[in-house]
Design a protein around this nucleic acid. Structure first.
Lengths: 214, 214
DNA sequence: AGCGCGCTGTGAACACGGTCACAACGTGAA
DNA sequence: TTCACGTTGTGACCGTGTTCACAGCGCGCT
């Protein structure tokens, strides 16, 4: 378990979602959870949950389960940098606005620090509490806000350009909503969210599902 | 290769994206492609592409590659029902509106046939060319439009309820944007798109990426 | 016509994540 | 104090998806 190249992607993903359940437990005043409870709240088996917690090195106690507050903090230490994570949004179209609305509502250790758009008449305006900046302010604002991730909500044609601009500013993580593959340096992490593909996949599976299994 | 339970999810996903590249080839008047060209346009190796095409039973010719038009049609026969796929959208908030805008622009064999919302003042209005219906019209309209997939863009608290309503109407595929796990019958396919988790994952990986690899 | 290059098709090996099954152990009851 | 139950921690196993490596083959060049 060296310092670079940490935990597997799938495990990290589940950690993010375990947190939600743990927070709910905390809200409900539930001090301890069992692996099977966490498993039920996710798409997982108890063994999977235990394996994940083993992977990150968190121990529970037999017959009493895992300490909710302790686990929550432990996961937080893994996922969150001490000073929170700042993101910048590129492209304030329909999707960009929806994302801004989402992240101003959503309570999470992540916040969108600034938004950018090329359209001159959008620049200077504010959307869901976030000021829209011109593109040429990107480098300055990324530096000022210490943003480490970028959200690409721009048209497909502009996506790669914008991605490279972000990378040039030092951003090393991207979430890309444009339906194109971005060619990026290997030290940049990119998560593609392709709504059309997701829908087509689901439509396919829905057509070919067996009538009934369980 | 029985009729139910078809191709692996990952393969289907790549087929969706291969189509994009193939359409672009067609637009450019390129009649044939090699596996390494398709691979370069995706996150894949040439062997992966050949394996996918082998899986679906499409043959190319050595030294000339794959026929673009033929492959495009072949994939279309696999992915698209003969009469297209209709989807319904539940929840016309910020995200719902962005999705409507997206799908009225995007040319694909998929279209959003109707939108639904509980808010009385939204009902009856039209958004990006799509009429917003009241929830109690769901069953009728799903039947009329032969919608097979549902898009959930509702708050987390309402998601499971809405999902079950859709399933009761005969919908067997869901795309869920709400940050909760839906408990559904096993013959229903559900794809979760969780933007917060994606961002947290990317932020994590960005923090732990090795400084440079290739 | 013959040759060589470069592509496809595919069995075999590999890697990874997920699951099983069980030993170890703490807790609560008797 | 002792016992039995239920849960954790984990080595071994398994299945799936990806990659390797090479045989087979068609095209274009000479």
């Amino acid at each position: 378990m060296n310092s670079t190249n940490h935990y597997p992607d799938r495990t990290v993903e589940r950690l993010c979602t375990y947190r939600r359940t743990l927070r709910r437990c905390l809200d409900e005043g539930k001090p301890r959870v069992f692996s099977h409870e966490l498993a039920a709240a996710h798409q997982a088996t108890p063994a999977q949950v235990r394996r994940d917690l083993m992977t990150i090195g968190f121990s529970g106690s037999p017959a009493r389960g895992y300490d909710v507050a302790g686990l929550l903090e432990y996961i937080g230490d893994i996922l969150d940098p001490p000073d929170g994570t700042a993101a910048v949004l590129l492209g304030v179209g329909h999707l960009g606005r929806a994302l801004l609305a989402h992240f101003t509502r959503d309570r999470s250790p992540l916040h969108v620090a600034a938004a950018f758009d090329i359209t001159p008449e959008k620049v200077g305006a504010s959307c869901h509490g976030c000021t829209i900046h011109p593109l040429d302010a990107l480098e300055r604002i990324v530096a000022e806000t210490h943003a480490t991730v970028g959200i690409l909500a721009v048209p497909a044609e502009a996506a790669e350009d914008m991605a490279l601009k972000l990378v040039a500013c030092g951003v090393r993580g991207l979430v890309n909503f444009a339906p194109v593959l971005l060619h990026l340096p290997s030290d940049v992490t990119c998560e593609d969210i392709d709504i059309t593909v997701s829908l087509e996949k689901v439509a396919y599976h829905a057509r070919h599902a067996e009538p009934r299994v369980a």
